[in-house]
Nucleic acid binder design. Structure first.
Length: 876
RNA sequence: GCCGGGAUGGCGGAAUCGGUAGACGCAGCGGAUUCAAAAUCCGCCGCUGGUAACAGUGUGGGGGUUCGAGUCCCCCUCCCGGCACCA
């Protein structure tokens, strides 16, 4: 055995061995129980960052642990290969996105292999390849025909200078990232997935996911946002005596010109309505603006700025009176209609009733614009005042109706019921379940994505591309220049014939949201080579995924879309399960400091932490020695350029050290602030482990008592160590399998190794004991540091396969245990009692102890609390 | 703004069901080894007072429940993630 720990050598050897034996090839036909362990696939941005290392090491630990426990494990890997960064790189470097992407994939694959992950590379896929997206296009055409996909107008960010649609990320403080021009909202036609049709199932399904973190389920439930309320209408005061069509016959907003529909969860406050507010895009607003130039200007102002909801919600609430009046549905009273920049056209009806007395936002709006405020809810002992908002105004659990005529005295539920019933009898409204969730718009005006398989024909309309003409292949030699969609300039792509009538037609040039590809890749891994359809029977062999691992930032969108897609595939008969991921581990973010410089016009250039050095608390760019601005600690990302390259770590210390450190530095669900310190310690531990095995093996020949079962002659010290060994085996298994807390598993093995180093003696029994402990320690570490474990196990047990150690219950037995002794809840000493002692015996022993006597001073205790196995608390 | 999460020594973190706060590691300090350094090994290490034994204090801030609170409840501050076109 080599005396020195040489990571590069043993890692190369171990990886060569695994590759040669196809050690991580998953069997589609095994009798053993399956364990499908999946980590979120990476976007091929260039090189791996620490977030990847963390994510894939967590997955690898679980995959390898389960393999050691006898499971047929599948751990696949692929590439989320379409996306905006490839187009940005193309603009910056004049390289086709395809070439850039494929080069990145090759480099990152090499990096993943150098980290020694137990990946079944035979299942590798890339979403930008036609043999993958072909089936996405096929499903699209199926769903389009079923009506699950439909077309409607939607609002996007428009850069008037670059003449292009901008992603929210490309809008910086209301301006286009490249042009710096103020961004406008623009309505364009888009294709939508009818995800709202599945809203109820997506919500109720959360209750059947015990293996998901509560926080993720809560976030999804809130996102779906089911609320029961009342949808009702105000009559728009007639300006020519038009009559209303049957108000409940239609659906959607603004049917007819004479009804203003709104939705509310607070129908109990309906008597307190003092105005209505509509979105700037609402038809009523447009109508009022025709004869009101000032209003038209205001509406145009509202169309400035980004469409991001976070921007909408944080901007100053502004409004303007339209001059229009509507009639209160119950009192007939005249109510003014305002345009509010805070009313979202995309949510509900694009219009809201305003009750300033009992809604905080309405309250402030009414105060700003001098609108009336009418109290209609009262709480006993509280006084309503117009001076300022108080929490109880909006509390529906405590209030009763006041100033509300016949509804006075009713509580929330009774008032909602009574008012809904009255609206219904007036045919002006009824109870309705509403979701916050909106349909999923998937059209993107971008080149580097999956083409939407639709052909536009002047005669036949939007025609889905027939299955035998799929895939619609994206040309890979295009270099975008940042303006418009380059596919529009490709006549060879655009011009086609209509599949229905055979006439000249135009191909759709929008591509799909990249979330579509990532919504079903987990299923395709079961059968990546199947060319007869989207999925074959192997999908049901492997699904659902037993363990899914990925960043917490995906808690809502990606995970909700993937759940939705699974149900779409189920309803197409492609999979038989209801949910894609049985267990979910959301790893915390790897965060790092950010550094930037700001050009005139607010454009920021971000610098990588590796290129920055700190002197006297000021950050300087290494290349030019000039200062940069410190931007705070944020998620490692391409856009903030604060990713730390793990390659240097691997080159210097080896993959095992990189893996050990990332698992040891923090528990997986917590965010991990990157720092170089600490890596050294992980490496030192591996060196000590190597040396301990080496020293032991120098005298291997004399190990006779090894696992003989006859442990009677062990010294007390050795017995205690053996107890610790088996406690450690128990703990590490529990930490990995149940708690998924790898940092404490590693700490426990470190403690064991520290104790083992102190164990004296070279007799046969002690050496046997040491052999047992070393084998177990190496095996327990194998999922985390597989290369060194492979090498050491081969020395400790030549020819044997790595096996997870079994707990010897007999080793865990203790005769005496130590309890802590508290006096008035403060630790004052210890008590030793027999492990079998009952409560009375423990109490007697505690009271008799020196420490207790000292504090009791001969007086009897007030109370004695005994927690067997833990403590005695004497209350004086 | 809304939804979700977090805050524990100089630092990363541990304390799994309300029961010894600070495991394990990093940094630091002292020592051994060495011509010297690196590496390695041994010891110390929350804060205050004390030579020490020990005492007090301490888990972002304020209040509460309990024999006992880092852990449960209420209020507050700050930080992070998501907010539908970043992935």
């Amino acid at each position: 055995m080599q005396e020195k720990y040489l990571p590069s050598e043993i890692e190369r050897a171990a990886q060569a061995k695994w590759t040669a034996s196809q050690a991580y090839r998953a069997s589609d036909t095994s009798e053993r129980p399956k364990y499908y362990c999946l980590s979120m696939f990476p976007y091929p941005s260039g090189k791996l960052h620490m977030g990847h290392v963390r994510n894939y090491t967590i997955g690898d630990v679980l995959a390898r642990y389960h393999a050691m426990r006898g499971y047929n494990v599948m751990q696949p890997m692929g590439w989320d290969a379409f996306g905006l960064p490839a187009e940005n790189a193309a603009i910056a470097n004049n390289v086709p996105p395809a070439a850039w992407t494929y080069a990145n994939i090759d480099h990152m694959r090499t990096q993943l292999q150098a980290l020694g992950f137990a990946i079944d590379w035979s299942r590798e896929l890339a979403t930008c390849k036609p043999d993958y997206y072909r089936w996405e296009q096929w499903l699209f055409t199926r769903l389009f025909e079923k009506g699950v996909i439909y077309k409607k107008m939607a609002t996007v960010n428009w850069d008037p200078v670059d003449q292009t649609v901008l992603a929210n990320e490309q809008v910086i403080e209301g301006r286009g990232w490249r042009s710096g021009a103020p961004v406008e909202k623009r309505d364009i036609p888009m294709y939508f997935f009818r995800i709202t049709q599945y809203a109820d199932e997506l919500l109720s399904g959360l209750d059947r996911l015990p293996g998901w973190p509560e926080r993720v389920k809560t976030m999804q439930a809130n996102w779906i946002g089911k609320s029961v309320g009342v949808r009702f209408a105000f009559r728009v005061s007639a300006e020519g005596g038009t009559t209303s069509p049957s108000p409940l016959a239609g659906e959607g907003r603004g049917e007819g010109e004479d009804l203003l529909w709104v939705f509310t969860t607070r129908a109990d406050t309906l008597m307190g309505v003092t105005f209505c507010a509509v979105a700037a895009e609402h038809p009523l607003a447009a109508r009022a603006a025709e004869s009101n130039p000032e209003l038209a200007v205001f509406i145009a102002e509202c169309k400035q700025g980004s469409v991001a909801e976070a921007d909408m919600a944080t901007m100053e609430k502004k409004g303007m009176d339209t001059g229009l009046k509507v009639a209160h549905p119950l009192t007939g009273e005249e109510v003014p209609v305002w345009v509010g920049n805070y009313v979202l056209m995309s949510y509900g009806e694009g219009a809201v009733m305003a009750v300033p007395a009992h809604d905080e936002r309405d309250f402030h709006f009414a105060k700003t614009y001098g609108l009336p405020i009418k109290q209609v809810i009262g709480v006993e002992g509280e006084t309503f005042s117009l001076d300022g908002w108080q929490e109880w105004y909006g509390d529906k659990t405590r209030g009763r109706c006041v100033n509300s005529g016949k509804y006075d005295g009713l509580d929330y539920a009774a008032a909602v019921d009574a008012i809904a019933a009255d609206l219904k009898s007036l045919k002006l409204g009824e109870k309705k379940t509403q979701f916050r969730l909106r349909d999923w718009g998937i059209s993107r005006q971008r080149y580097w994505g999956c083409p939407i398989p639709i052909i536009h024909c002047d005669h036949c309309g939007d025609v889905p591309v027939p299955a035998d003409q799929l895939p619609v292949v994206l040309p890979e030699d295009v270099v975008p220049d940042g303006s418009g969609n380059p596919l529009n300039k490709r006549a060879d792509f655009v011009n086609c014939t209509c599949p229905k009538c055979g006439g000249a037609a135009r191909r759709e040039t929008d591509t799909m949201d990249t979330f579509v590809e990532s919504s079903w890749y987990y299923a395709r891994y079961a059968c990546p080579d199947f060319d007869g359809g989207m999925l074959d029977a192997r999908a049901n062999t492997w699904l659902p995924v037993d363990q899914y691992i990925g960043g917490i930032e995906h808690a809502i969108l990606h995970l909700l879309y993937a759940r939705f897609f699974h149900k779409l595939m189920r309803d197409e008969g492609l999979v038989s399960s209801d949910e894609p991921f049985a267990n979910l581990l959301t790893q915390g973010m790897v965060v790092a400091d950010t550094y930037y410089r700001e050009a005139e016009g607010g454009k920021k250039t971000w610098f990588n932490p590796a290129d920055v050095e700190l002197r006297d608390g000021i950050a300087f760019l290494k290349s030019d020695g000039q200062p940069v601005i410190v931007g705070g600690t944020e998620k490692m990302s391409k856009s903030k350029n604060n990713g730390v390259d793990p390659q240097a770590l691997i080159d210097q210390y080896g993959a095992d050290t990189a893996r050990l450190f990332t698992m040891f530095a923090a528990p997986p669900e917590q965010s991990l602030e990157w720092s170089d310190a600490g890596v050294e310690g992980a490496h030192r531990f591996l060196k000590r482990l190597w040396k301990a095995a080496f020293d032991h093996l120098q005298v291997r020949g004399s190990v006779t008592a090894y696992m003989s079962g006859d442990l009677g002659n062990l010294s007390d010290e050795a017995k205690a160590l053996r107890r610790q060994l088996h406690q450690t085996i128990q703990k590490v298994g529990d930490d990995i399998e149940r708690r998924k807390q790898f940092n404490t598993a590693i700490a426990a093995v470190m403690e064991l190794m520290n104790a083992l180093a102190k164990l004296e003696g070279d007799d046969a029994m002690t050496r046997g004991m040491r052999q047992e402990a070393l084998e177990a320690a190496v095996a327990m570490l194998a999922p985390i540091v597989p290369h060194i474990a492979e090498a050491l196990y081969a020395e400790l047990r030549p020819g044997a396969a790595l096996a997870w150690p079994e707990v010897d219950e007999a080793a865990l037995v203790q005769d005496e245990i130590e309890l802590m002794l508290q006096v008035n809840g403060k630790l004052r000493g210890q008590v030793r009692v027999a492990a079998t002692a009952d409560k009375a015996a423990i109490e007697d022993a505690a009271l008799a102890s020196e420490a207790a006597q000292k504090y009791l001073e001969g007086k009897p205790p007030k109370k004695v609390v005994v927690v067997p196995g833990r403590l005695v608390n004497i209350v004086i």
